[in-house]
Protein backbone atom coordinates (compact mmCIF):
# COMPACT_ATOMS: atom_id res chain seq x y z
CA UNK A 1 0.00 0.00 0.00
CA UNK A 2 1.29 3.44 -0.81
CA UNK A 3 2.43 5.92 1.79
CA UNK A 4 -0.31 8.27 0.64
CA UNK A 5 -3.04 5.75 1.43
CA UNK A 6 -1.50 4.69 4.73
CA UNK A 7 -1.24 8.27 5.91
CA UNK A 8 -4.84 8.96 4.94
CA UNK A 9 -6.08 5.84 6.71
CA UNK A 10 -4.22 6.79 9.87
CA UNK A 11 -5.86 10.24 9.74
CA UNK A 12 -9.23 8.59 9.30
CA UNK A 13 -8.81 6.38 12.39
CA UNK A 14 -7.44 9.23 14.50
CA UNK A 15 -10.40 11.42 13.55
CA UNK A 16 -12.85 8.70 14.54
CA UNK A 17 -11.14 8.12 17.88
CA UNK A 18 -11.13 11.82 18.61
CA UNK A 19 -14.81 12.16 17.68
CA UNK A 20 -15.79 9.30 19.95
CA UNK A 21 -13.82 10.84 22.82
CA UNK A 22 -15.49 14.23 22.39
CA UNK A 23 -18.93 12.64 22.13
CA UNK A 24 -18.31 10.61 25.27
CA UNK A 25 -16.96 13.56 27.24
CA UNK A 26 -19.78 15.88 26.25
CA UNK A 27 -22.62 13.43 26.81
CA UNK A 28 -21.42 11.26 29.69
CA UNK A 29 -18.71 13.02 31.66
CA UNK A 30 -19.43 16.75 31.58
CA UNK A 31 -23.11 16.58 32.66
CA UNK A 32 -21.97 14.62 35.74
CA UNK A 33 -24.64 11.94 35.75
CA UNK A 34 -25.81 10.33 32.49
CA UNK A 35 -28.69 8.67 34.32
CA UNK A 36 -30.00 12.11 35.23
CA UNK A 37 -29.59 13.24 31.62
CA UNK A 38 -31.71 10.33 30.49
CA UNK A 39 -34.41 10.51 33.17
CA UNK A 40 -34.52 14.27 33.70
CA UNK A 41 -34.16 16.22 36.93
CA UNK A 42 -37.52 15.17 38.36
CA UNK A 43 -36.57 11.50 38.60
CA UNK A 44 -36.58 9.91 42.03
CA UNK A 45 -33.43 8.67 43.67
CA UNK A 46 -34.52 5.04 43.33
CA UNK A 47 -35.16 5.13 39.58
CA UNK A 48 -31.86 6.91 39.08
CA UNK A 49 -30.00 4.29 41.08
CA UNK A 50 -31.73 1.51 39.19
CA UNK A 51 -30.80 2.99 35.81
CA UNK A 52 -27.21 3.55 36.94
CA UNK A 53 -26.90 -0.06 37.85
CA UNK A 54 -28.51 -1.19 34.61
CA UNK A 55 -26.22 0.92 32.42
CA UNK A 56 -23.14 0.11 34.46
CA UNK A 57 -22.61 3.76 35.33
CA UNK A 58 -21.07 2.84 38.65
CA UNK A 59 -17.88 1.93 36.78
CA UNK A 60 -15.23 4.65 36.22
CA UNK A 61 -15.68 6.81 33.07
CA UNK A 62 -12.38 5.74 31.50
CA UNK A 63 -13.35 2.08 31.77
CA UNK A 64 -16.78 2.77 30.25
CA UNK A 65 -15.21 4.68 27.36
CA UNK A 66 -12.74 1.90 26.55
CA UNK A 67 -15.47 -0.74 26.72
CA UNK A 68 -17.68 1.33 24.41
CA UNK A 69 -14.98 1.99 21.80
CA UNK A 70 -13.80 -1.62 21.89
CA UNK A 71 -17.37 -2.79 21.29
CA UNK A 72 -17.82 -0.24 18.48
CA UNK A 73 -14.65 -1.49 16.83
CA UNK A 74 -16.16 -4.95 16.60
CA UNK A 75 -19.40 -3.51 15.22
CA UNK A 76 -21.32 -3.85 18.51
CA UNK A 77 -23.45 -0.73 18.95
CA UNK A 78 -24.98 -1.84 22.26
CA UNK A 79 -28.53 -1.41 23.51
CA UNK A 80 -30.96 1.44 23.08
CA UNK A 81 -32.50 2.46 26.39
CA UNK A 82 -35.66 3.95 24.89
CA UNK A 83 -36.35 1.23 22.32
CA UNK A 84 -35.11 -1.57 24.59
CA UNK A 85 -33.50 -3.27 21.61
CA UNK A 86 -30.12 -3.62 19.96
CA UNK A 87 -29.02 -0.40 18.23
CA UNK A 88 -27.41 -1.83 15.11
CA UNK A 89 -30.58 -3.30 13.50
CA UNK A 90 -32.31 -0.02 14.35
CA UNK A 91 -29.61 1.96 12.54
CA UNK A 92 -29.34 -0.46 9.62
CA UNK A 93 -33.04 -0.19 8.92
CA UNK A 94 -32.88 3.63 8.93
CA UNK A 95 -29.71 3.76 6.87
CA UNK A 96 -31.56 1.99 4.09
CA UNK A 97 -33.52 5.24 3.75
CA UNK A 98 -30.98 7.90 4.60
CA UNK A 99 -28.00 6.65 2.60
CA UNK A 100 -29.92 6.37 -0.69
CA UNK A 101 -31.44 9.77 0.05
CA UNK A 102 -28.06 11.39 0.63
CA UNK A 103 -26.47 9.69 -2.37
CA UNK A 104 -29.35 10.72 -4.60
CA UNK A 105 -29.11 14.29 -3.34
CA UNK A 106 -25.36 14.25 -3.97
CA UNK A 107 -25.78 12.95 -7.51
CA UNK A 108 -28.41 15.59 -8.22
CA UNK A 109 -26.17 18.27 -6.70
CA UNK A 110 -23.19 17.21 -8.80
CA UNK A 111 -25.03 16.96 -12.10
CA UNK A 112 -26.87 20.26 -11.65
CA UNK A 113 -23.83 22.12 -10.36
CA UNK A 114 -21.42 20.93 -13.05
CA UNK A 115 -23.86 21.65 -15.86
CA UNK A 116 -24.79 25.10 -14.57
CA UNK A 117 -21.29 26.04 -13.39
CA UNK A 118 -19.53 25.05 -16.60
CA UNK A 119 -22.25 26.61 -18.74
CA UNK A 120 -22.04 29.87 -16.80
CA UNK A 121 -18.24 29.94 -17.09
CA UNK A 122 -18.38 29.22 -20.82
CA UNK A 123 -20.77 32.17 -21.18
CA UNK A 124 -18.82 34.45 -18.87
CA UNK A 125 -20.13 38.04 -18.81
CA UNK A 126 -23.13 37.10 -20.95
CA UNK A 127 -26.80 37.11 -19.86
CA UNK A 128 -26.87 33.32 -19.29
CA UNK A 129 -24.01 33.63 -16.80
CA UNK A 130 -25.68 36.48 -14.95
CA UNK A 131 -28.99 34.59 -14.82
CA UNK A 132 -27.40 31.41 -13.44
CA UNK A 133 -25.49 33.43 -10.85
CA UNK A 134 -28.65 35.26 -9.76
CA UNK A 135 -30.64 32.04 -9.42
CA UNK A 136 -27.86 30.32 -7.50
CA UNK A 137 -27.58 33.31 -5.16
CA UNK A 138 -31.27 32.84 -4.46
CA UNK A 139 -30.75 29.09 -3.98
CA UNK A 140 -28.01 29.68 -1.42
CA UNK A 141 -30.07 32.11 0.64
CA UNK A 142 -33.19 29.93 0.93
CA UNK A 143 -33.22 27.10 3.50
CA UNK A 144 -33.84 23.58 2.24
CA UNK A 145 -36.97 22.97 4.35
CA UNK A 146 -38.60 25.91 2.58
CA UNK A 147 -37.72 24.32 -0.76
CA UNK A 148 -39.16 21.10 0.60
CA UNK A 149 -42.50 22.73 1.31
CA UNK A 150 -42.47 24.44 -2.08
CA UNK A 151 -41.74 21.14 -3.83
CA UNK A 152 -44.50 19.39 -1.90
CA UNK A 153 -47.00 22.10 -2.82
CA UNK A 154 -46.06 22.00 -6.47
CA UNK A 155 -45.29 18.36 -7.28
CA UNK A 156 -47.36 16.55 -4.66
CA UNK A 157 -50.36 18.78 -3.99
CA UNK A 158 -50.81 20.56 -7.35
CA UNK A 159 -49.51 18.06 -9.88
CA UNK A 160 -49.77 14.86 -7.86
CA UNK A 161 -46.62 13.39 -9.42
CA UNK A 162 -45.07 12.37 -6.10
CA UNK A 163 -46.41 11.63 -2.66
CA UNK A 164 -46.12 14.41 -0.10
CA UNK A 165 -44.28 12.22 2.38
CA UNK A 166 -43.90 8.82 3.93
CA UNK A 167 -41.87 5.86 2.71
CA UNK A 168 -43.26 2.54 1.43
CA UNK A 169 -40.08 0.61 2.26
CA UNK A 170 -37.81 -1.17 -0.19
CA UNK A 171 -39.73 -4.41 0.22
CA UNK A 172 -42.62 -2.86 -1.77
CA UNK A 173 -40.40 -2.58 -4.81
CA UNK A 174 -37.55 -0.41 -6.03
CA UNK A 175 -39.42 2.28 -7.96
CA UNK A 176 -42.07 3.27 -5.40
CA UNK A 177 -39.33 3.58 -2.78
CA UNK A 178 -37.09 5.61 -5.09
CA UNK A 179 -40.00 7.83 -6.03
CA UNK A 180 -40.63 8.64 -2.38
CA UNK A 181 -37.04 9.91 -2.15
CA UNK A 182 -37.09 12.18 -5.22
CA UNK A 183 -38.64 15.28 -3.64
CA UNK A 184 -36.62 15.15 -0.41
CA UNK A 185 -33.42 14.57 -2.41
CA UNK A 186 -34.28 17.53 -4.66
CA UNK A 187 -34.99 19.75 -1.65
CA UNK A 188 -31.61 18.81 -0.15
CA UNK A 189 -29.77 19.13 -3.46
CA UNK A 190 -30.98 22.56 -4.58
CA UNK A 191 -29.11 24.51 -1.92
CA UNK A 192 -25.95 22.45 -2.27
CA UNK A 193 -26.12 22.61 -6.07
CA UNK A 194 -26.38 26.38 -5.91
CA UNK A 195 -23.20 26.52 -3.81
CA UNK A 196 -21.34 23.98 -5.91
CA UNK A 197 -22.35 25.64 -9.20
CA UNK A 198 -20.74 28.88 -8.05
CA UNK A 199 -17.58 27.05 -6.97
CA UNK A 200 -17.48 25.21 -10.30
CA UNK A 201 -17.93 28.41 -12.28
CA UNK A 202 -15.15 30.26 -10.51
CA UNK A 203 -12.82 27.23 -10.67
CA UNK A 204 -13.42 26.92 -14.41
CA UNK A 205 -12.95 30.66 -14.98
CA UNK A 206 -9.73 30.63 -12.99
CA UNK A 207 -8.41 27.64 -14.91
CA UNK A 208 -9.28 29.29 -18.23
CA UNK A 209 -6.73 32.00 -17.43
CA UNK A 210 -3.91 29.47 -17.12
CA UNK A 211 -1.04 29.52 -19.59
CA UNK A 212 -1.64 25.94 -20.73
CA UNK A 213 -5.13 26.90 -21.85
CA UNK A 214 -3.58 29.48 -24.16
CA UNK A 215 -1.14 26.79 -25.35
CA UNK A 216 -4.07 24.52 -26.13
CA UNK A 217 -5.77 27.31 -28.07
CA UNK A 218 -2.54 27.98 -29.96
CA UNK A 219 -2.53 24.31 -30.99
CA UNK A 220 -5.79 24.93 -32.80
CA UNK A 221 -8.30 23.57 -30.33
CA UNK A 222 -11.64 25.34 -30.33
CA UNK A 223 -13.06 26.89 -27.17
CA UNK A 224 -15.33 23.95 -26.36
CA UNK A 225 -12.64 21.33 -26.85
CA UNK A 226 -10.25 23.29 -24.64
CA UNK A 227 -12.97 23.51 -22.02
CA UNK A 228 -13.68 19.78 -21.97
CA UNK A 229 -10.15 18.46 -22.53
CA UNK A 230 -7.94 20.89 -20.67
CA UNK A 231 -9.95 23.07 -18.33
CA UNK A 232 -12.50 20.82 -16.68
CA UNK A 233 -10.22 18.24 -15.10
CA UNK A 234 -7.90 20.94 -13.82
CA UNK A 235 -10.85 22.79 -12.30
CA UNK A 236 -12.09 19.63 -10.61
CA UNK A 237 -9.81 19.67 -7.56
CA UNK A 238 -11.57 22.52 -5.71
CA UNK A 239 -14.94 21.17 -6.86
CA UNK A 240 -14.26 17.70 -5.45
CA UNK A 241 -13.05 19.20 -2.16
CA UNK A 242 -16.32 21.06 -1.71
CA UNK A 243 -18.30 17.97 -2.74
CA UNK A 244 -16.71 16.02 0.10
CA UNK A 245 -17.75 18.69 2.59
CA UNK A 246 -21.22 18.87 1.09
CA UNK A 247 -21.88 15.19 1.61
CA UNK A 248 -21.49 15.76 5.34
CA UNK A 249 -23.87 18.71 5.08
CA UNK A 250 -26.37 16.57 3.22
CA UNK A 251 -26.26 13.93 5.94
CA UNK A 252 -27.03 16.42 8.68
CA UNK A 253 -29.55 18.07 6.36
CA UNK A 254 -31.52 14.82 6.35
CA UNK A 255 -32.44 15.37 10.01
CA UNK A 256 -34.71 18.28 9.04
CA UNK A 257 -35.80 16.97 5.63
CA UNK A 258 -36.81 13.56 6.98
CA UNK A 259 -39.05 15.38 9.45
CA UNK A 260 -40.69 17.40 6.70
CA UNK A 261 -41.28 14.34 4.50
CA UNK A 262 -41.90 11.95 7.43
CA UNK A 263 -39.24 9.53 6.20
CA UNK A 264 -38.17 6.79 8.62
CA UNK A 265 -34.46 7.56 8.22
CA UNK A 266 -31.39 8.04 10.36
CA UNK A 267 -32.11 11.73 10.70
CA UNK A 268 -35.47 11.03 12.24
CA UNK A 269 -33.93 8.41 14.47
CA UNK A 270 -31.52 11.04 15.79
CA UNK A 271 -34.36 13.47 16.25
CA UNK A 272 -36.34 10.92 18.23
CA UNK A 273 -33.29 9.78 20.18
CA UNK A 274 -32.71 13.36 21.28
CA UNK A 275 -36.35 13.77 22.37
CA UNK A 276 -36.13 10.42 24.20
CA UNK A 277 -32.73 11.30 25.69
CA UNK A 278 -31.58 7.95 24.41
CA UNK A 279 -27.91 8.55 25.21
CA UNK A 280 -26.45 5.33 23.82
CA UNK A 281 -28.29 5.81 20.55
CA UNK A 282 -27.21 9.47 20.17
CA UNK A 283 -23.59 8.59 20.85
CA UNK A 284 -23.48 5.71 18.42
CA UNK A 285 -25.30 7.50 15.62
CA UNK A 286 -23.02 10.52 16.02
CA UNK A 287 -19.93 8.35 15.69
CA UNK A 288 -21.52 6.62 12.72
CA UNK A 289 -22.12 10.02 11.04
CA UNK A 290 -18.52 10.90 11.71
CA UNK A 291 -17.44 7.58 10.22
CA UNK A 292 -19.40 8.26 7.04
CA UNK A 293 -18.02 11.80 6.73
CA UNK A 294 -14.38 10.81 7.22
CA UNK A 295 -14.83 7.90 4.82
CA UNK A 296 -16.09 10.36 2.21
CA UNK A 297 -13.07 12.54 2.82
CA UNK A 298 -10.88 9.50 2.36
CA UNK A 299 -12.61 8.87 -0.97
CA UNK A 300 -12.02 12.51 -1.91
CA UNK A 301 -8.31 12.05 -1.22
CA UNK A 302 -8.29 9.03 -3.50
CA UNK A 303 -10.04 11.13 -6.15
CA UNK A 304 -7.35 13.83 -5.90
CA UNK A 305 -4.71 11.23 -6.65
CA UNK A 306 -6.74 10.00 -9.61
CA UNK A 307 -7.16 13.55 -10.94
CA UNK A 308 -3.67 14.92 -10.43
CA UNK A 309 -0.52 12.91 -11.24
CA UNK A 310 1.54 15.30 -9.10
CA UNK A 311 -0.12 13.93 -5.95
CA UNK A 312 0.71 10.37 -6.85
CA UNK A 313 4.34 11.32 -7.29
CA UNK A 314 4.58 13.05 -3.94
CA UNK A 315 3.87 10.03 -1.76
CA UNK A 316 6.81 7.84 -2.84
Amino acid sequence: MSVFLARRLATLLATLLFTSLVVFLVLEVLPGDPAEVILGTEATAETLAALRAKLGLDRPAAERYVTWVAALATGDFGLSHAYSQRIWPLIAERMAVTLPLAVMAMVLTTVLALLLGVYAAAHHNKPADAAIMAVSQLGISIPSFWFAILLILLFAVELGWFSAGGFPGWSKGFWPALQALVLPAAALALVQAAILARITRSAVLETMREDYVRTARAKGLGRDRVLWRHVLRNALVPVVTIMGLQFGNLLTGTIVIEQVFTLPGLGRLVFQAISNRDLALIENVTVLFAFIVVSINFLVDLLYAAIDPRLKARDV
Binding site: D211, Y212, A216, A218, G220, D308
Partner: peptide
Amino acid sequence: RGNRIAMVFQEPMTALNPL
Protein backbone atom coordinates in the same frame (compact mmCIF):
# COMPACT_ATOMS: atom_id res chain seq x y z
CA ARG B 1 -3.28 27.62 -35.40
CA GLY B 2 -0.87 24.85 -34.48
CA ASN B 3 -0.99 23.76 -38.11
CA ARG B 4 0.33 26.53 -40.39
CA ILE B 5 1.22 29.01 -37.66
CA ALA B 6 2.61 27.71 -34.38
CA MET B 7 3.73 29.45 -31.25
CA VAL B 8 6.17 28.74 -28.43
CA PHE B 9 5.54 30.66 -25.23
CA GLN B 10 7.76 32.21 -22.63
CA GLU B 11 6.94 30.17 -19.54
CA PRO B 12 7.64 26.47 -20.02
CA MET B 13 6.74 25.85 -16.37
CA THR B 14 3.11 26.83 -16.84
CA ALA B 15 2.53 26.41 -20.57
CA LEU B 16 1.99 22.66 -20.33
CA ASN B 17 -1.14 21.05 -18.90
CA PRO B 18 0.00 19.47 -15.60
CA LEU B 19 -2.55 16.65 -15.87
